[in-house]
């Protein structure tokens, strides 16, 4: 799998949201997409997921334009974990995770043996196999997030996009989610996750994209990305012995 963003720009009406992204990604990378609120992280992920159309440039996966692919075909290649994790109706955990196989389902809505295997594997990877018969709305926030992650993993797509997968979770669940995403990347998938926790991004990601005012200003390894210049310019903070501090 290869992902290529070529002069990708997205706008809302006449207002540019993201400008001139030129990036290439190969399999097995775990990319942390960081930037302050409003920098355009969700916009980038939604555009790669095919939910927003670019007004300039292209996004392609394995040489095929994402926005020209039929919806079901695209869904088989790109899994998307949205920021909004509200569930309208109370389904069981297994029913919810099985929605990840929607792009593969026959017209009669039946699941194949492969689908069931993918669902089981996703439940195991996200550590929620034991929750599978419980109702989603009876779970804690952290457990719900793991279930949503399992739903995204069940797609078994080569590219997984996760929009703030650790937001509002306690440290145990944040680490648990990021470990599952890293395991997915190590198994050969590409993972792009927008993250607010810089320490965790540094700890788990193999590559960092820094987005500022709709522009990609840095594309480096975690070791070099979190330098004082970037922290001051993008986040108005600095790193001290006691943690982060506002400038």
């Amino acid at each position: 799998m290869s992902l290529k963003l070529d002069h990708l720009s997205v706008s809302y009406g006449h207002e540019p949201l993201v400008s001139q992204l030129n990036i290439q990604v190969k399999s097995g990378e775990f990319i942390g997409l960081i930037g302050p609120n409003g920098a355009g992280k969700t916009c980038v992920l939604k555009t790669i997921a095919g939910l927003l159309k670019p007004h300039k440039g292209t996004a392609s996966i394995t040489g095929r334009n994402i926005h020209s692919l039929p919806a079901r075909q695209r869904a088989k290649h790109i899994a998307y974990l949205a920021q909004n994790r509200h569930m309208a109706w109370s389904l069981s955990v297994r029913e919810l995770v099985s929605l990840g196989r929607a792009p593969f389902r026959s017209s009669l809505g039946r699941f194949s043996a492969d689908d069931e295997l993918a669902i089981d594997a996703a439940l195991h990877t996200a550590h929620c196999y034991d929750l599978q018969n419980r109702k989603f709305d009876k779970l804690s926030g952290g457990e719900q997030m793991r279930v949503h992650l399992a739903r995204a993993l069940a797609v078994n797509a080569p590219l997984l996009l996760a929009d703030e997968p650790t937001t509002a979770l306690d440290p145990y669940f944040q680490i648990s989610i990021l470990k599952a995403l890293r395991a997915s990347a190590l198994s050969g998938k590409t993972v792009i996750a927008s993250l607010h926790d810089l320490t965790l991004a540094k700890q788990f990601c193999t590559r960092i994209w820094v987005l500022h005012e709709g522009k990609l200003i840095l594309d480096e390894t975690p070791e070099t990305a979190f330098n004082p210049d970037m922290l001051a310019r993008v986040f108005d903070i600095r790193s001290t012995d006691h943690g982060w501090e506002i400038l």
Partner: peptide, 11 residues
Amino acid sequence: SLGEDTAQSLG
């Protein structure tokens, strides 16, 4: 049930 964005991403 997962919301419009997620549903669209699932085809």
